[in-house]
Amino acid sequence: MEKKILMGVQNVSKTYQMGEVKVHALKDASFELYEGEFVVILGPSGSGKSTLLNILGGMDSPSEGRVFIHEEEITDYNDKQLTVYRRDHVGFVFQFYNLMANLTAKENVELATEICKNALNIDEIMDDVGLGDRKDHFPSQMSGGEQQRVAIARAVAKNPVLLLCDEPTGALDFQTGIMILSLLHKINRQFNKTVVIITHNTPIGEMADRVIKMRSGKIVEMKENVNPMPPERIEW
């Protein structure tokens, strides 16, 4: 089957000011993302992978270079268009879940679906992530793994084409981490969503269709896995 290109990244660089220091976070990155692909971006902290993810998600704009989705250039977008892009095309999962503390699990998901056009059925999604009976709990009443599952539900329920996950297992123990990875894998396969995970945890790369390795703001290696390992068998 021929792979369809979802996103194109061409010679993207990013520098930003942090306090009194100028940081070259990303240097001349180029690659493509395909529809339904499971990609893991690997690298130590400070390698520029979060910056890359933010640029892919329309959360940040590059200092140089161009980014396309379905042949449309998002680097041309203004603030408003970027908002619409994030609303309709992208789902985010963060390392620290970032749920609204004073909204219940279900309300956190609804917060996202309220503003988009093709939202999926929330109750079904809640069941899919295994939280059908914890819908009315507040984040403070849930474990880290449960909170991350809410965050995934929040991202998926919008029915985006692209799911961007920033260290989704970073704050979780091994068991819970594996469970979250399985969930993301299931979503990738079941809903045919492109999933991009960034992590410094090398073994996670084994479940990916493709691994992009980064160091000091540069892409140093790109490798396809012919036979990705099921997440349940990963160990670290």
């Binding site: 998600g57 959360m59 603030d79 408003k80 908002t83 619409v84 994030r86 609303r87 309709d88 992208v90 985010f92 963060f94 970032n98 609204m100 917060l111 996202a112 503003i115 988009c116 929040r154 919008k158």
Partner: peptide, 13 residues
């Protein structure tokens, strides 16, 4: 951070 998340989800200014 919440505002960042809201913006990431697709809420406008």
């Amino acid at each position: 951070i919440y505002i960042g998340v809201l913006k990431a989800i697709g809420y406008g200014n």
